[in-house]
Design a protein around this nucleic acid. Structure first.
Length: 570
RNA sequence: CGGGAUGUGGCUCAGCUUGGUAGAGCGCCUGGUUCGGGACCAGGAGGCCGCAGGUUCAAAUCCUGUCAUCCCGACCA
Protein backbone atom coordinates (compact mmCIF):
# COMPACT_ATOMS: atom_id res chain seq x y z
CA UNK A 1 0.00 0.00 0.00
CA UNK A 2 1.23 3.44 -0.87
CA UNK A 3 1.05 5.88 2.00
CA UNK A 4 0.14 8.52 -0.56
CA UNK A 5 -3.07 6.63 -1.28
CA UNK A 6 -3.87 5.28 2.16
CA UNK A 7 -6.64 7.07 4.01
CA UNK A 8 -5.11 7.66 7.42
CA UNK A 9 -5.73 11.23 8.50
CA UNK A 10 -3.32 11.67 11.40
CA UNK A 11 -3.69 14.54 13.81
CA UNK A 12 -0.91 16.42 15.41
CA UNK A 13 -2.94 17.46 18.42
CA UNK A 14 -5.15 15.48 20.73
CA UNK A 15 -8.82 16.08 20.07
CA UNK A 16 -10.30 17.56 23.20
CA UNK A 17 -13.02 14.95 23.43
CA UNK A 18 -10.58 12.14 24.14
CA UNK A 19 -9.50 11.48 27.68
CA UNK A 20 -8.01 8.00 27.73
CA UNK A 21 -4.87 7.05 25.89
CA UNK A 22 -6.29 4.49 23.49
CA UNK A 23 -9.03 6.87 22.46
CA UNK A 24 -6.58 9.70 21.88
CA UNK A 25 -4.21 7.53 19.92
CA UNK A 26 -6.82 5.86 17.76
CA UNK A 27 -8.16 9.29 16.83
CA UNK A 28 -4.77 10.84 16.28
CA UNK A 29 -3.43 7.93 14.26
CA UNK A 30 -6.42 8.04 11.94
CA UNK A 31 -8.03 4.75 12.95
CA UNK A 32 -11.41 5.99 14.09
CA UNK A 33 -13.69 8.99 13.88
CA UNK A 34 -16.72 9.67 15.99
CA UNK A 35 -20.15 9.77 14.40
CA UNK A 36 -22.01 10.51 17.63
CA UNK A 37 -21.48 9.71 21.30
CA UNK A 38 -20.36 6.10 21.59
CA UNK A 39 -20.57 5.41 17.84
CA UNK A 40 -17.50 5.39 15.64
CA UNK A 41 -16.43 4.93 12.04
CA UNK A 42 -13.53 2.59 11.52
CA UNK A 43 -11.06 3.87 8.96
CA UNK A 44 -8.88 1.58 6.83
CA UNK A 45 -6.17 0.98 9.43
CA UNK A 46 -8.74 0.07 12.07
CA UNK A 47 -10.59 -2.10 9.63
CA UNK A 48 -7.44 -4.10 9.03
CA UNK A 49 -6.76 -4.52 12.74
CA UNK A 50 -10.33 -5.57 13.44
CA UNK A 51 -10.26 -8.10 10.63
CA UNK A 52 -7.12 -9.64 12.03
CA UNK A 53 -8.59 -9.90 15.49
CA UNK A 54 -11.77 -11.38 14.07
CA UNK A 55 -9.85 -13.91 12.03
CA UNK A 56 -7.89 -15.14 15.00
CA UNK A 57 -11.10 -15.40 16.99
CA UNK A 58 -12.83 -17.13 14.10
CA UNK A 59 -10.05 -19.67 13.69
CA UNK A 60 -10.13 -20.58 17.35
CA UNK A 61 -13.90 -20.76 17.48
CA UNK A 62 -13.88 -23.06 14.48
CA UNK A 63 -11.12 -25.16 15.98
CA UNK A 64 -13.20 -25.57 19.13
CA UNK A 65 -16.13 -26.81 17.11
CA UNK A 66 -18.02 -23.55 16.69
CA UNK A 67 -19.99 -22.73 13.57
CA UNK A 68 -20.41 -19.18 12.42
CA UNK A 69 -23.82 -17.71 11.81
CA UNK A 70 -25.06 -14.21 11.09
CA UNK A 71 -28.02 -13.18 13.18
CA UNK A 72 -30.52 -10.35 12.96
CA UNK A 73 -29.58 -7.08 14.57
CA UNK A 74 -33.11 -5.78 14.27
CA UNK A 75 -35.06 -8.02 16.60
CA UNK A 76 -38.80 -8.18 17.31
CA UNK A 77 -39.98 -7.08 20.73
CA UNK A 78 -42.01 -10.28 21.24
CA UNK A 79 -38.85 -12.32 21.72
CA UNK A 80 -37.65 -9.99 24.41
CA UNK A 81 -41.03 -9.84 26.06
CA UNK A 82 -41.10 -13.60 26.19
CA UNK A 83 -37.75 -13.79 27.99
CA UNK A 84 -38.78 -10.95 30.25
CA UNK A 85 -35.84 -8.81 29.25
CA UNK A 86 -37.89 -6.24 27.32
CA UNK A 87 -38.49 -4.68 30.74
CA UNK A 88 -35.35 -5.85 32.50
CA UNK A 89 -33.03 -4.30 29.96
CA UNK A 90 -34.76 -1.00 30.39
CA UNK A 91 -33.29 2.11 28.86
CA UNK A 92 -30.14 0.34 27.89
CA UNK A 93 -31.84 -1.19 24.87
CA UNK A 94 -32.09 0.78 21.67
CA UNK A 95 -35.71 0.52 20.63
CA UNK A 96 -37.43 1.42 17.42
CA UNK A 97 -40.80 1.08 15.73
CA UNK A 98 -41.59 0.08 12.19
CA UNK A 99 -44.18 1.78 9.98
CA UNK A 100 -46.89 -0.40 11.50
CA UNK A 101 -45.93 0.86 14.91
CA UNK A 102 -44.56 -2.52 15.99
CA UNK A 103 -41.73 -2.56 18.52
CA UNK A 104 -38.22 -3.67 17.73
CA UNK A 105 -34.87 -3.59 19.43
CA UNK A 106 -31.35 -3.34 18.12
CA UNK A 107 -29.79 -6.47 19.57
CA UNK A 108 -27.71 -5.75 22.69
CA UNK A 109 -27.00 -9.48 22.84
CA UNK A 110 -28.39 -12.50 21.09
CA UNK A 111 -29.55 -15.10 23.60
CA UNK A 112 -33.18 -14.66 22.66
CA UNK A 113 -32.79 -14.87 18.95
CA UNK A 114 -30.40 -17.78 18.91
CA UNK A 115 -32.31 -19.80 21.45
CA UNK A 116 -35.42 -19.36 19.38
CA UNK A 117 -33.54 -20.34 16.28
CA UNK A 118 -32.19 -23.49 17.85
CA UNK A 119 -35.54 -24.31 19.37
CA UNK A 120 -37.18 -24.25 15.95
CA UNK A 121 -34.85 -26.73 14.36
CA UNK A 122 -33.12 -28.82 16.97
CA UNK A 123 -35.28 -31.37 18.75
CA UNK A 124 -33.07 -34.33 19.50
CA UNK A 125 -30.15 -35.15 21.71
CA UNK A 126 -28.59 -36.50 18.54
CA UNK A 127 -27.99 -32.98 17.32
CA UNK A 128 -26.35 -31.73 20.49
CA UNK A 129 -24.01 -30.31 21.51
CA UNK A 130 -24.24 -27.35 19.18
CA UNK A 131 -21.89 -24.38 19.30
CA UNK A 132 -22.93 -21.38 17.24
CA UNK A 133 -21.23 -18.03 17.07
CA UNK A 134 -21.52 -14.69 15.41
CA UNK A 135 -19.27 -11.68 15.04
CA UNK A 136 -21.46 -8.64 14.64
CA UNK A 137 -22.38 -5.20 15.79
CA UNK A 138 -24.25 -5.01 19.06
CA UNK A 139 -26.07 -2.06 20.51
CA UNK A 140 -26.40 -0.81 24.02
CA UNK A 141 -27.67 2.62 24.83
CA UNK A 142 -25.17 3.06 27.64
CA UNK A 143 -26.00 5.56 30.33
CA UNK A 144 -22.69 7.10 29.68
CA UNK A 145 -20.60 6.01 26.74
CA UNK A 146 -16.97 6.82 27.40
CA UNK A 147 -13.35 6.04 26.74
CA UNK A 148 -13.85 5.87 22.97
CA UNK A 149 -14.16 2.27 21.87
CA UNK A 150 -13.96 0.96 25.44
CA UNK A 151 -17.56 1.64 26.22
CA UNK A 152 -19.42 2.44 23.05
CA UNK A 153 -23.06 2.22 22.21
CA UNK A 154 -22.37 0.41 18.98
CA UNK A 155 -19.60 -2.13 19.15
CA UNK A 156 -18.36 -5.31 17.54
CA UNK A 157 -18.66 -8.43 19.55
CA UNK A 158 -18.14 -12.12 19.09
CA UNK A 159 -20.64 -14.24 20.94
CA UNK A 160 -20.73 -17.99 20.96
CA UNK A 161 -23.67 -19.85 22.43
CA UNK A 162 -23.40 -23.48 23.42
CA UNK A 163 -26.31 -25.91 23.66
CA UNK A 164 -25.81 -29.15 25.52
CA UNK A 165 -27.95 -31.97 26.82
CA UNK A 166 -26.87 -31.64 30.43
CA UNK A 167 -24.53 -30.01 32.92
CA UNK A 168 -21.68 -32.38 32.08
CA UNK A 169 -22.02 -31.41 28.45
CA UNK A 170 -21.96 -27.76 29.42
CA UNK A 171 -18.81 -28.35 31.44
CA UNK A 172 -17.16 -29.75 28.33
CA UNK A 173 -18.27 -26.84 26.16
CA UNK A 174 -17.27 -24.33 28.81
CA UNK A 175 -13.86 -25.89 29.10
CA UNK A 176 -13.40 -25.82 25.33
CA UNK A 177 -14.17 -22.13 25.31
CA UNK A 178 -11.92 -21.48 28.26
CA UNK A 179 -9.08 -23.08 26.34
CA UNK A 180 -10.00 -21.34 23.09
CA UNK A 181 -10.01 -17.97 24.83
CA UNK A 182 -6.59 -18.56 26.24
CA UNK A 183 -5.32 -19.47 22.78
CA UNK A 184 -6.90 -16.34 21.35
CA UNK A 185 -5.37 -13.92 23.81
CA UNK A 186 -2.01 -15.62 23.56
CA UNK A 187 -2.14 -15.34 19.80
CA UNK A 188 -3.13 -11.69 20.06
CA UNK A 189 0.02 -11.22 22.13
CA UNK A 190 -1.72 -9.35 24.86
CA UNK A 191 -0.84 -9.47 28.49
CA UNK A 192 -3.94 -10.73 30.18
CA UNK A 193 -5.28 -12.58 33.19
CA UNK A 194 -8.21 -14.87 33.59
CA UNK A 195 -10.19 -14.05 36.68
CA UNK A 196 -13.15 -15.47 38.45
CA UNK A 197 -16.05 -13.15 37.99
CA UNK A 198 -19.36 -12.36 39.47
CA UNK A 199 -21.90 -13.82 37.09
CA UNK A 200 -24.21 -10.95 37.94
CA UNK A 201 -27.70 -10.69 36.61
CA UNK A 202 -27.09 -13.12 33.79
CA UNK A 203 -27.13 -15.95 36.26
CA UNK A 204 -25.32 -19.23 36.15
CA UNK A 205 -22.84 -20.64 38.57
CA UNK A 206 -19.52 -20.23 36.86
CA UNK A 207 -18.03 -17.31 35.07
CA UNK A 208 -14.60 -16.11 34.05
CA UNK A 209 -13.43 -12.79 32.74
CA UNK A 210 -10.46 -12.30 30.47
CA UNK A 211 -8.78 -9.07 31.43
CA UNK A 212 -6.16 -7.27 29.39
CA UNK A 213 -3.84 -5.63 31.87
CA UNK A 214 -3.72 -1.87 31.59
CA UNK A 215 -3.07 0.84 34.11
CA UNK A 216 -6.30 2.64 33.59
CA UNK A 217 -8.52 -0.31 32.98
CA UNK A 218 -11.96 0.06 34.50
CA UNK A 219 -11.85 -3.06 36.63
CA UNK A 220 -9.57 -3.97 39.48
CA UNK A 221 -8.38 -7.52 39.82
CA UNK A 222 -6.20 -9.43 42.19
CA UNK A 223 -4.05 -12.35 41.17
CA UNK A 224 -1.60 -14.79 42.62
CA UNK A 225 1.82 -15.28 41.12
CA UNK A 226 2.33 -18.58 42.83
CA UNK A 227 -0.74 -20.36 41.52
CA UNK A 228 -3.11 -19.27 38.77
CA UNK A 229 -5.76 -17.80 41.03
CA UNK A 230 -7.16 -14.52 39.86
CA UNK A 231 -10.39 -12.70 40.59
CA UNK A 232 -12.21 -9.51 40.09
CA UNK A 233 -11.90 -7.59 43.36
CA UNK A 234 -15.67 -7.65 43.47
CA UNK A 235 -15.45 -11.37 43.79
CA UNK A 236 -12.03 -12.12 45.31
CA UNK A 237 -12.28 -14.10 48.49
CA UNK A 238 -10.50 -12.61 51.48
CA UNK A 239 -9.45 -15.43 53.67
CA UNK A 240 -8.54 -14.78 57.25
CA UNK A 241 -4.90 -14.70 58.13
CA UNK A 242 -3.75 -16.87 61.00
CA UNK A 243 -4.86 -15.55 64.36
CA UNK A 244 -2.13 -13.57 66.05
CA UNK A 245 0.09 -15.71 68.21
CA UNK A 246 0.16 -13.46 71.24
CA UNK A 247 -3.35 -12.58 72.29
CA UNK A 248 -3.56 -9.00 73.37
CA UNK A 249 -5.13 -8.35 76.72
CA UNK A 250 -8.41 -6.46 76.68
CA UNK A 251 -7.99 -2.96 77.98
CA UNK A 252 -10.50 -0.71 79.63
CA UNK A 253 -12.68 1.14 77.11
CA UNK A 254 -12.17 4.89 77.15
CA UNK A 255 -14.06 7.78 75.65
CA UNK A 256 -11.84 10.42 74.11
CA UNK A 257 -12.69 13.97 73.09
CA UNK A 258 -11.76 14.34 69.43
CA UNK A 259 -13.00 17.70 68.23
CA UNK A 260 -13.27 17.94 64.44
CA UNK A 261 -11.63 14.55 63.87
CA UNK A 262 -13.75 12.74 61.33
CA UNK A 263 -11.69 10.51 59.13
CA UNK A 264 -9.46 7.53 59.72
CA UNK A 265 -6.54 9.69 58.66
CA UNK A 266 -7.58 12.40 61.13
CA UNK A 267 -7.46 9.96 64.00
CA UNK A 268 -4.08 8.70 62.89
CA UNK A 269 -2.75 12.26 62.85
CA UNK A 270 -4.50 13.36 66.02
CA UNK A 271 -3.82 10.48 68.35
CA UNK A 272 -1.40 8.38 66.37
CA UNK A 273 -3.74 5.43 66.20
CA UNK A 274 -2.65 3.22 63.31
CA UNK A 275 -5.30 2.59 60.66
CA UNK A 276 -5.18 -1.10 61.45
CA UNK A 277 -6.25 -0.31 64.99
CA UNK A 278 -9.29 1.63 63.88
CA UNK A 279 -12.55 0.49 62.44
CA UNK A 280 -14.71 2.16 59.85
CA UNK A 281 -18.45 2.16 60.45
CA UNK A 282 -20.59 2.48 57.35
CA UNK A 283 -24.36 2.83 57.38
CA UNK A 284 -26.42 1.51 54.48
CA UNK A 285 -30.01 1.18 53.47
CA UNK A 286 -30.63 -2.51 52.80
CA UNK A 287 -33.92 -2.11 50.98
CA UNK A 288 -35.82 -0.17 53.68
CA UNK A 289 -33.78 -1.11 56.72
CA UNK A 290 -30.70 0.70 57.98
CA UNK A 291 -27.76 -1.58 58.72
CA UNK A 292 -24.14 -1.04 59.69
CA UNK A 293 -21.03 -2.55 58.16
CA UNK A 294 -17.68 -2.59 59.92
CA UNK A 295 -14.32 -2.95 58.25
CA UNK A 296 -10.80 -2.25 59.40
CA UNK A 297 -9.75 1.39 59.08
CA UNK A 298 -7.50 0.83 56.08
CA UNK A 299 -9.96 -1.40 54.20
CA UNK A 300 -12.80 -0.77 51.80
CA UNK A 301 -16.22 -2.27 52.08
CA UNK A 302 -17.17 -4.44 49.11
CA UNK A 303 -20.77 -3.55 48.47
CA UNK A 304 -21.41 -6.57 46.30
CA UNK A 305 -20.26 -8.99 48.97
CA UNK A 306 -22.21 -7.08 51.58
CA UNK A 307 -25.31 -7.18 49.45
CA UNK A 308 -24.92 -10.92 48.97
CA UNK A 309 -24.57 -11.38 52.72
CA UNK A 310 -27.72 -9.38 53.38
CA UNK A 311 -29.65 -10.91 50.51
CA UNK A 312 -31.36 -7.61 49.83
CA UNK A 313 -32.37 -6.15 46.48
CA UNK A 314 -31.13 -2.63 46.89
CA UNK A 315 -28.16 -1.44 48.85
CA UNK A 316 -27.10 2.16 49.03
CA UNK A 317 -25.37 4.41 51.49
CA UNK A 318 -27.51 6.19 54.03
CA UNK A 319 -27.63 9.97 54.00
CA UNK A 320 -26.04 11.78 56.89
CA UNK A 321 -29.31 13.28 58.14
CA UNK A 322 -30.94 9.89 58.62
CA UNK A 323 -27.82 8.56 60.26
CA UNK A 324 -27.61 11.46 62.65
CA UNK A 325 -31.21 11.05 63.67
CA UNK A 326 -30.89 7.35 64.34
CA UNK A 327 -27.39 7.07 65.71
CA UNK A 328 -26.97 10.40 67.37
CA UNK A 329 -23.85 11.36 65.48
CA UNK A 330 -22.70 12.27 61.99
CA UNK A 331 -20.50 10.23 59.69
CA UNK A 332 -17.21 11.01 61.37
CA UNK A 333 -18.14 9.77 64.81
CA UNK A 334 -19.92 6.46 64.28
CA UNK A 335 -19.12 3.21 65.98
CA UNK A 336 -20.69 -0.12 66.91
CA UNK A 337 -20.98 0.50 70.64
CA UNK A 338 -24.61 1.02 71.50
CA UNK A 339 -25.53 1.37 67.83
CA UNK A 340 -29.26 0.68 67.42
CA UNK A 341 -28.74 -1.16 64.10
CA UNK A 342 -27.93 -4.63 62.94
CA UNK A 343 -24.17 -4.60 62.67
CA UNK A 344 -22.24 -6.78 60.25
CA UNK A 345 -18.51 -7.04 60.66
CA UNK A 346 -15.78 -8.13 58.33
CA UNK A 347 -13.89 -11.31 59.17
CA UNK A 348 -10.81 -9.29 59.88
CA UNK A 349 -12.61 -7.14 62.44
CA UNK A 350 -13.45 -10.25 64.41
CA UNK A 351 -9.72 -10.65 65.07
CA UNK A 352 -9.13 -7.10 66.24
CA UNK A 353 -8.54 -6.16 69.84
CA UNK A 354 -8.59 -2.78 71.55
CA UNK A 355 -9.54 -0.81 68.51
CA UNK A 356 -10.73 2.76 68.07
CA UNK A 357 -14.02 3.86 66.63
CA UNK A 358 -16.58 6.63 66.84
CA UNK A 359 -18.62 6.95 70.03
CA UNK A 360 -21.90 7.84 68.31
CA UNK A 361 -21.55 11.28 69.73
CA UNK A 362 -20.13 14.08 67.62
CA UNK A 363 -16.48 14.85 68.42
CA UNK A 364 -16.00 11.76 70.58
CA UNK A 365 -14.30 8.45 69.89
CA UNK A 366 -13.80 5.30 71.91
CA UNK A 367 -10.49 3.55 72.22
CA UNK A 368 -9.90 0.01 73.39
CA UNK A 369 -13.19 -1.27 72.08
CA UNK A 370 -13.58 -5.04 71.96
CA UNK A 371 -15.92 -7.38 70.21
CA UNK A 372 -18.28 -9.30 72.50
CA UNK A 373 -17.69 -7.15 75.51
CA UNK A 374 -18.66 -3.83 73.93
CA UNK A 375 -20.99 -4.91 71.13
CA UNK A 376 -22.41 -7.98 69.45
CA UNK A 377 -22.45 -8.27 65.68
CA UNK A 378 -25.36 -9.62 63.65
CA UNK A 379 -22.96 -11.38 61.35
CA UNK A 380 -19.29 -12.00 60.69
CA UNK A 381 -18.57 -12.24 56.98
CA UNK A 382 -16.09 -11.51 54.24
CA UNK A 383 -17.33 -8.08 53.20
CA UNK A 384 -14.22 -6.14 52.24
CA UNK A 385 -12.32 -5.58 49.02
CA UNK A 386 -9.27 -7.69 48.48
CA UNK A 387 -6.01 -5.76 48.27
CA UNK A 388 -2.38 -6.32 47.40
CA UNK A 389 -0.77 -8.41 50.08
CA UNK A 390 -3.84 -10.40 51.03
CA UNK A 391 -3.16 -14.08 50.97
CA UNK A 392 -4.34 -16.19 48.08
CA UNK A 393 -7.39 -18.24 49.02
CA UNK A 394 -5.97 -21.19 47.08
CA UNK A 395 -2.31 -21.30 48.03
CA UNK A 396 -1.88 -18.53 50.65
CA UNK A 397 0.84 -16.73 48.72
CA UNK A 398 0.48 -12.95 48.67
CA UNK A 399 -1.92 -11.53 46.11
CA UNK A 400 -1.16 -8.65 43.77
CA UNK A 401 -3.68 -6.24 42.44
CA UNK A 402 -3.86 -4.67 39.01
CA UNK A 403 -6.26 -2.92 36.74
CA UNK A 404 -7.56 -4.49 33.61
CA UNK A 405 -9.89 -4.12 30.67
CA UNK A 406 -12.50 -6.81 30.36
CA UNK A 407 -12.27 -8.14 26.83
CA UNK A 408 -13.80 -11.58 27.23
CA UNK A 409 -16.39 -13.07 29.51
CA UNK A 410 -17.64 -16.62 29.61
CA UNK A 411 -20.75 -17.77 31.44
CA UNK A 412 -22.58 -20.93 32.19
CA UNK A 413 -26.18 -19.98 31.62
CA UNK A 414 -27.77 -23.31 32.44
CA UNK A 415 -31.41 -23.55 31.44
CA UNK A 416 -32.38 -19.97 32.22
CA UNK A 417 -33.13 -19.04 28.62
CA UNK A 418 -33.99 -22.45 27.25
CA UNK A 419 -36.77 -22.75 29.81
CA UNK A 420 -38.48 -19.45 29.18
CA UNK A 421 -37.97 -19.66 25.44
CA UNK A 422 -38.84 -23.34 25.43
CA UNK A 423 -35.71 -24.63 23.74
CA UNK A 424 -36.20 -28.29 24.54
CA UNK A 425 -34.97 -31.53 23.09
CA UNK A 426 -35.92 -35.19 23.46
CA UNK A 427 -33.39 -37.33 25.23
CA UNK A 428 -32.61 -40.96 24.49
CA UNK A 429 -35.63 -42.09 26.43
CA UNK A 430 -37.96 -39.69 24.69
CA UNK A 431 -38.23 -37.30 27.58
CA UNK A 432 -38.43 -33.58 26.87
CA UNK A 433 -35.69 -31.55 28.52
CA UNK A 434 -34.44 -27.98 28.30
CA UNK A 435 -31.11 -27.49 26.63
CA UNK A 436 -28.26 -26.43 28.89
CA UNK A 437 -26.65 -23.30 27.60
CA UNK A 438 -23.48 -21.28 27.89
CA UNK A 439 -22.52 -17.95 26.39
CA UNK A 440 -19.07 -16.69 25.59
CA UNK A 441 -18.30 -13.16 24.47
CA UNK A 442 -15.30 -11.27 23.20
CA UNK A 443 -15.44 -7.56 22.58
CA UNK A 444 -13.68 -7.25 19.25
CA UNK A 445 -13.60 -3.47 19.00
CA UNK A 446 -12.79 -3.20 22.67
CA UNK A 447 -9.91 -5.61 22.19
CA UNK A 448 -8.47 -3.29 19.57
CA UNK A 449 -8.68 -0.40 22.03
CA UNK A 450 -7.21 -2.53 24.81
CA UNK A 451 -4.28 -3.52 22.59
CA UNK A 452 -3.65 0.12 21.71
CA UNK A 453 -3.86 1.05 25.37
CA UNK A 454 -1.55 -1.68 26.56
CA UNK A 455 1.14 -1.27 23.94
CA UNK A 456 1.35 2.48 23.63
CA UNK A 457 4.43 4.56 24.34
CA UNK A 458 5.08 8.30 24.15
CA UNK A 459 5.35 8.16 20.37
CA UNK A 460 2.12 6.35 19.66
CA UNK A 461 0.60 2.94 19.32
CA UNK A 462 2.68 -0.23 19.40
CA UNK A 463 0.64 -3.00 17.83
CA UNK A 464 1.43 -6.58 18.61
CA UNK A 465 2.53 -8.09 15.30
CA UNK A 466 -0.45 -10.44 14.85
CA UNK A 467 -2.91 -7.58 14.72
CA UNK A 468 -0.81 -4.73 13.32
CA UNK A 469 -2.51 -3.13 10.34
CA UNK A 470 0.67 -3.62 8.33
CA UNK A 471 3.81 -5.54 9.17
CA UNK A 472 6.43 -3.29 7.60
CA UNK A 473 6.72 0.32 6.54
CA UNK A 474 9.36 1.42 4.07
CA UNK A 475 10.48 4.99 4.55
CA UNK A 476 12.62 6.61 1.89
CA UNK A 477 14.01 9.64 3.70
CA UNK A 478 13.75 11.92 0.70
CA UNK A 479 11.02 11.19 -1.80
CA UNK A 480 12.69 13.40 -4.41
CA UNK A 481 15.88 11.40 -4.35
CA UNK A 482 15.68 8.98 -7.24
CA UNK A 483 18.21 6.56 -5.89
CA UNK A 484 16.36 6.23 -2.61
CA UNK A 485 13.00 5.91 -4.28
CA UNK A 486 14.32 3.29 -6.64
CA UNK A 487 15.69 1.24 -3.77
CA UNK A 488 12.43 1.71 -1.87
CA UNK A 489 10.25 0.61 -4.75
CA UNK A 490 12.32 -2.41 -5.52
CA UNK A 491 12.18 -3.47 -1.87
CA UNK A 492 8.47 -2.85 -1.89
CA UNK A 493 8.00 -5.09 -4.91
CA UNK A 494 10.16 -7.74 -3.31
CA UNK A 495 8.14 -7.63 -0.09
CA UNK A 496 4.94 -7.87 -2.04
CA UNK A 497 6.22 -10.99 -3.76
CA UNK A 498 7.00 -12.41 -0.36
CA UNK A 499 3.51 -11.70 0.86
CA UNK A 500 4.57 -9.16 3.46
CA UNK A 501 2.01 -6.55 4.35
CA UNK A 502 3.87 -3.39 3.51
CA UNK A 503 3.34 0.34 3.38
CA UNK A 504 5.71 2.43 1.32
CA UNK A 505 5.79 6.02 2.45
CA UNK A 506 6.03 7.64 -0.96
CA UNK A 507 4.58 10.92 0.23
CA UNK A 508 6.45 14.09 -0.49
CA UNK A 509 6.99 14.81 3.19
CA UNK A 510 10.02 15.52 5.26
CA UNK A 511 11.61 12.56 6.99
CA UNK A 512 10.48 13.71 10.40
CA UNK A 513 6.84 13.66 9.41
CA UNK A 514 7.16 10.15 8.03
CA UNK A 515 8.90 8.87 11.15
CA UNK A 516 6.31 10.45 13.41
CA UNK A 517 3.46 8.95 11.46
CA UNK A 518 5.08 5.51 11.29
CA UNK A 519 5.50 5.53 15.06
CA UNK A 520 2.04 6.91 15.68
CA UNK A 521 0.22 4.25 13.68
CA UNK A 522 2.40 1.62 15.27
CA UNK A 523 3.81 -0.47 12.43
CA UNK A 524 6.08 -3.15 13.99
CA UNK A 525 9.00 -2.83 11.56
CA UNK A 526 10.36 0.22 9.80
CA UNK A 527 12.82 0.12 6.94
CA UNK A 528 14.58 3.44 6.49
CA UNK A 529 16.32 4.20 3.22
CA UNK A 530 18.59 7.18 3.56
CA UNK A 531 21.67 8.60 1.90
CA UNK A 532 24.09 7.54 4.63
CA UNK A 533 23.46 3.84 4.52
CA UNK A 534 22.43 3.62 0.90
CA UNK A 535 25.94 4.61 -0.12
CA UNK A 536 27.08 1.37 1.46
CA UNK A 537 24.20 -0.47 -0.21
CA UNK A 538 22.54 -0.84 3.15
CA UNK A 539 19.25 0.12 4.75
CA UNK A 540 18.19 0.47 8.36
CA UNK A 541 15.71 -1.82 10.02
CA UNK A 542 14.12 -0.63 13.22
CA UNK A 543 11.63 -2.38 15.42
CA UNK A 544 8.87 -0.14 16.71
CA UNK A 545 9.79 -1.22 20.22
CA UNK A 546 13.55 -0.80 19.81
CA UNK A 547 15.69 2.26 20.30
CA UNK A 548 18.41 1.31 17.89
CA UNK A 549 18.48 0.44 14.25
CA UNK A 550 20.10 -2.45 12.49
CA UNK A 551 22.03 -1.96 9.26
CA UNK A 552 21.34 -4.61 6.68
CA UNK A 553 22.68 -4.99 3.12
CA UNK A 554 20.04 -4.32 0.48
CA UNK A 555 20.06 -7.82 -0.89
CA UNK A 556 19.58 -9.37 2.55
CA UNK A 557 16.74 -7.15 3.71
CA UNK A 558 13.82 -9.29 2.80
CA UNK A 559 15.20 -12.45 4.37
CA UNK A 560 16.21 -10.50 7.47
CA UNK A 561 12.75 -8.94 7.73
CA UNK A 562 11.08 -12.30 7.37
CA UNK A 563 13.27 -13.73 10.08
CA UNK A 564 12.53 -10.84 12.42
CA UNK A 565 8.81 -11.15 11.82
CA UNK A 566 9.02 -14.84 12.49
CA UNK A 567 10.77 -14.22 15.77
CA UNK A 568 8.29 -11.54 16.72
CA UNK A 569 5.36 -13.83 16.10
CA UNK A 570 6.68 -16.55 18.37
C1' C B 1 -30.77 10.78 36.10
C1' G B 2 -27.66 14.08 39.79
C1' G B 3 -23.02 17.28 39.96
C1' G B 4 -19.31 20.04 36.92
C1' A B 5 -17.53 22.06 32.35
C1' U B 6 -17.43 23.27 27.17
C1' G B 7 -19.54 24.56 22.18
C1' U B 8 -15.67 30.17 17.62
C1' G B 9 -12.61 27.26 9.92
C1' G B 10 -10.29 20.12 9.59
C1' C B 11 -7.36 20.09 14.84
C1' U B 12 -5.83 23.01 19.35
C1' C B 13 -7.42 27.43 21.29
C1' A B 14 -7.75 33.24 22.05
C1' G B 15 -11.62 36.98 21.79
C1' C B 16 -16.85 37.33 25.77
C1' U B 17 -15.65 40.58 32.02
C1' U B 18 -16.31 46.33 29.48
C1' G B 19 -21.52 44.87 22.81
C1' G B 20 -19.09 48.31 17.53
C1' U B 21 -17.43 44.70 10.45
C1' A B 22 -14.04 37.38 13.54
C1' G B 23 -8.33 36.16 15.35
C1' A B 24 -3.68 32.94 16.23
C1' G B 25 -0.91 28.28 15.77
C1' C B 26 -1.19 23.71 13.29
C1' G B 27 -3.46 21.46 8.90
C1' C B 28 -5.10 22.55 3.57
C1' C B 29 -4.01 25.08 -1.69
C1' U B 30 -0.09 27.90 -5.03
C1' G B 31 5.04 29.33 -5.80
C1' G B 32 9.98 29.22 -4.02
C1' U B 33 14.00 27.66 -0.66
C1' U B 34 14.81 23.25 2.13
C1' C B 35 15.11 17.80 3.15
C1' G B 36 17.42 11.84 8.77
C1' G B 37 12.51 12.99 14.01
C1' G B 38 6.09 17.03 13.01
C1' A B 39 11.10 23.04 8.15
C1' C B 40 11.20 28.26 6.28
C1' C B 41 9.54 32.53 3.16
C1' A B 42 5.64 34.71 0.23
C1' G B 43 0.70 34.44 -1.35
C1' G B 44 -4.25 32.09 -0.79
C1' A B 45 -8.89 29.28 0.38
C1' G B 46 -11.93 28.16 4.39
C1' G B 47 -16.20 30.31 9.89
C1' C B 48 -24.39 32.73 9.26
C1' C B 49 -19.08 32.13 16.53
C1' G B 50 -24.04 24.85 18.24
C1' C B 51 -29.39 26.18 17.35
C1' A B 52 -33.84 29.29 18.43
C1' G B 53 -35.85 33.39 20.56
C1' G B 54 -35.12 38.10 23.21
C1' U B 55 -32.64 42.99 24.70
C1' U B 56 -30.15 46.80 21.62
C1' C B 57 -29.13 51.56 16.53
C1' A B 58 -25.70 47.34 16.85
C1' A B 59 -24.75 40.63 19.79
C1' A B 60 -19.45 35.56 19.24
C1' U B 61 -19.94 38.95 23.54
C1' C B 62 -25.80 40.43 27.55
C1' C B 63 -30.69 37.51 28.79
C1' U B 64 -33.97 33.08 28.11
C1' G B 65 -34.68 28.48 26.15
C1' U B 66 -32.89 24.35 23.61
C1' C B 67 -29.46 20.80 21.51
C1' A B 68 -24.77 18.52 21.52
C1' U B 69 -20.12 17.02 23.59
C1' C B 70 -16.80 15.87 27.63
C1' C B 71 -15.62 14.86 32.91
C1' C B 72 -17.26 12.87 38.02
C1' G B 73 -21.14 9.78 40.24
C1' A B 74 -25.10 6.16 40.15
C1' C B 75 -25.28 1.89 36.30
C1' C B 76 -22.95 -1.97 33.41
C1' A B 77 -22.53 -8.24 28.82
Amino acid sequence: MKASELFFPTLREVPSEAEVLSHQLLLRAGFIRKATAGVYSYLPLASRVLKKIMNIVREEMDRAGGQEVILPIVQPAELWKKSGRWEVYGDEMFRLKDRHNRDFALGPTHEEIITTLVDADVHSYRHLPLLLYQIQNKYRDEIRPRFGLMRGREFIMKDLYSFDIDEEGLDVSYHKMYEAYNRIFQRLKLQYRVVEADSGAIGGNESHEFMVLAENGEAEIVYCENCDYGANTEKAVCSLEEPKAAEEEQLEREKVHTPGQRTIQDLLDYMNIPKEKQIKTLIYYADEELVAALVRGDRELNEIKFKNVLGCNQLFMADEAAVKQLCGAGFGSLGPVGLPLKTYIDLEVSQMKNFACGANEDDYHFINVNLGRDFTPAGINDIRNAVTGDSCPVCSAPLYSMRGIEVGHIFKLGTKYSEVLEANYLDQKGREKPMVMGCYGIGISRTMAAAAEQGADENGIVWPLPIAPFEVIIVPVNSKNEEQMQAAWSLYEEFKQEGLETIIDDRDERAGVKFKDADLIGIPLRITIGPRSLQEKQVEIKKRTAKDVELVPLDAVSSRVKLMLKEMSK
